[in-house]
């Protein structure tokens, strides 16, 4: 038995979603495996567009950034905050390390998610595909940091607003089942840096992740 009855809450979460999986996401695997299917975009015109932004983001990407995330929910009377670091290692490894108010780590590499919590010494691997919510988050990061606009556009309807100096990229999931949990993701930034990621649920709840590059 890996779990006792009094397993900690995040372990329970993991179990729940491994077992129930109420969102079956039909995912054409060749998309994951092969991002070179089609290169669309109008970069030739020299106009400011999503492709250019993504390529620029990848170029100026910092390996590790720190973040502060604020969660707003209809269940709550005041927002909740967490702090930590995000670390992306090309081509497909993303680490979200929460350091405050507790210590918790998600390391996503390919389809595998490693979850670790120091206080309870829990360490578990699971499949990203069982957690659509996490996948949205991961894909946004991966495709923007890896300079892969094709994958990004495959999963999201992308709209770009603003100027290269100060811009917002609004993403709407294409997948119907994902739409039921994530309405939109709004990335805002300055030049080649993402400074803010806002994720909205259909019920109006949202989380705002503010990114600071080290030294800033």
């Amino acid at each position: 038995m890996i779990f006792g009855v009094n397993a900690n809450r995040t372990t329970l979460l993991l179990v729940l979603f491994t077992l129930t999986r109420f969102m079956v996401v039909p995912l054409p695997s060749q998309v994951w495996a092969d991002p070179t299917t089609q290169a669309e975009g109008n970069s030739a015109t020299g106009e400011w567009n999503v492709d250019q932004l993504i390529i620029r983001l990848a170029k100026q990407r910092k390996e590790t950034v720190s973040f502060e995330e604020t969660t707003f929910s209809a269940m709550l009377t005041e927002p909740l905050k967490t702090r930590g670091t995000l670390k992306f290692t090309p081509p497909a490894r993303l680490e979200k390390h929460v350091t405050d108010p507790y210590d918790e780590r998600y390391v996503i590499d390919g389809d595998n998610v490693l979850y670790e919590k120091n206080s309870t010494r829990v360490s578990k691997n699971f499949s990203l595909e069982d957690y659509p919510v996490l996948r949205v988050f991961v894909e946004v990061f991966r495709s923007s940091f890896a300079g892969d606009p094709v994958t990004l556009k495959r999963f999201y309807k992308a709209t770009l607003e603003g100027k290269p100096r100060q811009w917002s990229l609004i993403l709407h999931p294409q997948d119907v089942t994902i739409q039921s949990i994530v309405q939109s993701v709004r990335l805002s930034g300055e030049g080649g840096h993402i400074t803010r990621i806002e994720t909205r649920s259909p019920d109006g709840d949202r989380s705002v992740l503010v990114i600071q590059a080290p030294g800033e």
């Binding site: 809450r9 969102m23 909740l80």
Partner: peptide, 10 residues
């Protein structure tokens, strides 16, 4: 804590 974890929407 659950509500501020990445899995909160689920």
């Amino acid at each position: 804590d659950d509500l501020r974890s990445p899995l909160a929407p689920m």
